[in-house]
């Protein structure tokens, strides 16, 4: 069937596979952003975590020979960036959106600076699980080659939803995010909870970055991350601050981003560069459709006034 009609079915399968591949970094970054925003703070600097994670993960994987060590280091790099972000934001009169932009510029520059030696070498890739082994179709097999990190992300999303709903610490994060005053009255150290939430979010975003360099596209170069970190912010709004919806939203965005390459793979090359804009247009469209002048977003943490 698939071989008989490589046209539209091929595109569909390629988009599906692409949704999983391209969507995985979105998933991790949006889960990270979700965690940070639930504590009432926005981190626009996750782009930096993503690209620094990609660079450090690739570098460490190359030097140590272990891709998983690379993932861990990428996460830890994200923790450090989250720490800087949180410490800056808790100062008086410091705007967290502006800090995010500054972190983005700083992290990008730093990643390019430190990553210069790693552009050439080849690091070990993350292993993948071949769910398509039963099929004869190479297209289908390629599409169903699912990376282990994606599986981790799929498990993590409901786990995080459970965390926010039932775990003591999850409730703590939500309290701080809903009302700073109520949290203060309860004797909670608001800044510390936000610090941990930002660091945790940074970890996830860093791991998402390592996926970029260690699996897909699977090498380190300076054009690796192109706004996914900031799109994650829009994605979290779209997902209504619900980690499980973050998973669906990531797949949707990944699919949109995979559209151009998928069409190209079946020979439709016209407008390839225009299709590159698909995820951005989709994000903007969703933002326009779901925002409202009159009311706040459903599910939005009370302390988030900026979005």
């Amino acid at each position: 069937m698939v071989e008989a009609d490589p046209g539209y079915a091929g595109v569909l399968i390629a988009v599906l596979g692409g949704a999983i591949r391209v969507g995985t970094p979105f998933l991790f970054v949006s889960l990270g952003e979700c965690l940070t925003e639930k504590s009432g703070r926005i981190n626009l600097g996750l782009e930096a975590n993503l690209i620094m994670g990609a660079m450090s993960g690739y570098g460490v994987a190359y030097l140590s020979g272990s891709a998983w060590l690379g993932v861990l280091v990428a996460g830890l790099t994200g923790v450090v960036l989250g720490l800087i972000h949180a410490l800056l934001c808790q100062q008086d009169k410091v705007n967290d959106i502006a800090v995010g932009i500054a972190m983005m510029l700083f992290g990008t520059g730093l990643a390019f600076y430190l990553g210069k030696p790693f552009i050439q070498p080849v690091a070990p890739r993350l292993p993948s699980i071949e769910l398509g082994a039963w099929s004869d179709s190479p297209v289908l097999r390629a599409a169903l080659e699912i990376n282990a990190l994606f599986v981790v992300g799929v498990i993590l999303a409901p786990l995080m939803a459970w965390f926010f709903r039932y775990a003591r610490w999850g409730l703590l994060v939500r309290t701080v995010g809903e009302s700073r005053d109520a949290a203060l009255a309860m004797g909670i150290n608001v800044n510390r909870v936000r610090l941990y939430a930002t660091m945790g979010g940074g970890f996830l975003a860093g791991v998402g970055g390592s996926f970029l360099s260690l699996y897909y596209p699977g090498s380190w170069n300076e054009g690796l991350s192109s706004g996914q970190g900031l799109m994650a912010v829009a994605l979290v709004i779209f997902a209504r601050w619900n980690p499980v919806y973050c998973l669906y939203a990531s797949l949707l965005f990944g699919g949109a981003a995979a559209l151009g390459p998928a069409l190209q793979s079946v020979g439709i090359t016209w407008g390839y560069y225009l299709f590159n804009a698909a995820p951005y247009v989709l994000t903007l469209g969703i933002m326009i459709a779901t925002s409202s002048r009159k009311q706040r977003f459903a599910g939005m943490p009370g302390e988030m006034s900026n979005i």
Binding site: L44, I97, I101, S226, G227, L230, M231, V233, A234, I237, G271, Y272, Y273, L274, N276, A277, Y280, V281, T283, L284, M287, I288, S291, S292, R293, N306, I307
Partner: peptide, 24 residues
């Protein structure tokens, strides 16, 4: 102003859209 779309995010998205149109 009219839809309360966060300007930081929309402006960044429009950057990428502009670049895609330019490349095309």
């Amino acid at each position: 102003h009219y839809r309360n779309v966060n300007e930081t995010i929309s402006s960044l998205l429009l950057n990428y859209i502009a670049i895609a149109i330019m490349s095309f």
